[in-house]
Design a protein around this nucleic acid. Structure first.
Lengths: 242, 242
DNA sequence: TTTGCACTCCCCATAAATAGCGGGTTTTGC
DNA sequence: GCAAAACCCGCTATTTATGGGGAGTGCAAA
């Protein structure tokens, strides 16, 4: 077990990440990064604004397939926990109570994921949510020393992957374009706060019919199927804040 | 004009930021950081989950007051532009067309803000949105050299402020998000994805009435007034991911 | 200056969600 | 083992949202 990082090569790896043209290139760099840090696994995966999942990393293919097949995204305490957090977190500090979480953990370790882990969450303007994770097999103290001494390197690495991944993400151009008008933002915000249509119309001092026009135009701009969908998209894209 | 950064002292500043107990402490460190980078101004400001604004920085008090008084937050292309972005951006690359934006720029420069600028946006799980900005008076080339060579330091500094600011934010502790049951999570998620109740019930292979029970229990747990409200809260509390 | 966009208002018919009542089984945690 | 919580289903009635039409103003940029 080697837990040594040579900062000399980190910069060169991150520079290559910044110039990566494909996911395959990033995959290669993530393997270099794993060797650099001397950990068992590194994974970078993210959820785009349209809910699509992307990722690259060094987990065994069997685990990746199982993860997708079992839809572990909705169970994985790392994903769910980091979604509520701002800064990097050690997996030990997440909530592993609950049967589903414990089963997931057992399954993960069985498939080669380490017993220790550390994740850096980053989120973007349109609900993009990315996670840069390291996983390793070691005792608690060794792991604590490692994460403490490489905290900054890990943040920088996460940022590098993140920046490039977002640039490589397909269909980014037309999604950011669809902003909402001020009135539409008002309407979506008040709906998200639990007001009924009548209350929203009253709050905005407009007729309920006018309000409906805003809701519908917001729906169309957001490509939403109904009001709940529209509010959810506006929220997760950061167009409204509640 | 000095644009030299000694990396030896950056770490010590950021470590003091990480241990800062109050906004005043952070204010002190931000001044040290300004001297370290040799720029005219550094500002860190953020919008919390309840919409409150906080900030600290080296701008003249007259400008801060004018900014708040004129409600420039809704005009400032730096704030608006970075809200739509993921990674650090030079102010020159933002959209300064539009009368309001140009007036704002003139007003800002008149109050001592530099003609150059660079901002690092970061956002958090509950709609928090933070901006770490540097401003300086210089020509384009000098500024481009500075930002290029200190790109990583700036990201690290932004992260350091960000992490501490979020920890210092009041009212974070009592945000004990009551968890939803797996079925409630399913229901909320599918609703957020735009499915109607009939479609959700069909997807989950349960009766529409049973689905209704889940939606209502989720509503009660979330203290929501209606379904839209419940979905919005579940989303913004990170209980569901779409 | 003309084109676009944001903003405001109105009707009608149908689809969907909400509110209230009732009944039951299976899992999970202490 | 027991209690609590999660899981599942039925009914009726009312309120609310949605979908499809309309029309007209004003502002600002191309």
């Amino acid at each position: 077990m080697v837990l040594v990082a040579e900062t000399t090569s980190l910069n060169s790896i991150l520079e290559r990440v910044a110039r990566a043209d494909t996911l395959t290139d990033m995959q290669q760099e993530i393997e270099r990064l794993r060797d650099h840090f001397g950990v068992d696994h590194i994974v970078y995966h993210w959820v785009s604004s349209d809910g699509e999942q992307y990722g690259c990393g060094t987990y065994p293919m069997t685990w990746v397939e199982r993860y997708l097949e079992k839809n572990y995204l909705r169970i994985d305490p790392v994903v769910l926990g980091c979604y509520q957090r701002f800064h990097p977190v050690d997996w030990k500090r997440l909530d592993w109570s609950g049967k589903a979480a414990r089963n997931f953990l057992a399954d993960a370790i069985e498939h080669g994921v380490g017993n220790q882990g550390f994740s850096v969450p980053i989120r973007g303007p349109n609900g993009q949510y990315a996670l840069f994770s390291l996983s390793h097999n070691s005792d608690d103290d060794t792991w604590a020393d490692f994460t403490a001494s490489h905290h900054r390197d890990l943040i920088m690495a996460a940022h590098a992957f993140n920046q490039r991944a977002l640039e490589l993400e397909p269909g980014r151009a037309q999604e950011t374009a669809q902003a909402l008008s001020p009135r539409e933002v008002d309407a979506m915000t008040l709906l998200a706060l639990g007001y009924s249509r009548a209350q929203v119309a009253n709050s905005l001092s407009i007729s309920e019919h006018t309000l409906r026009v805003y809701i519908e135009s917001a729906r169309h701009k957001l490509g939403a199927l109904n009001t709940i969908h529209a509010v959810a998209r506006a929220l997760s894209r950061g167009l409204i804040v509640i």
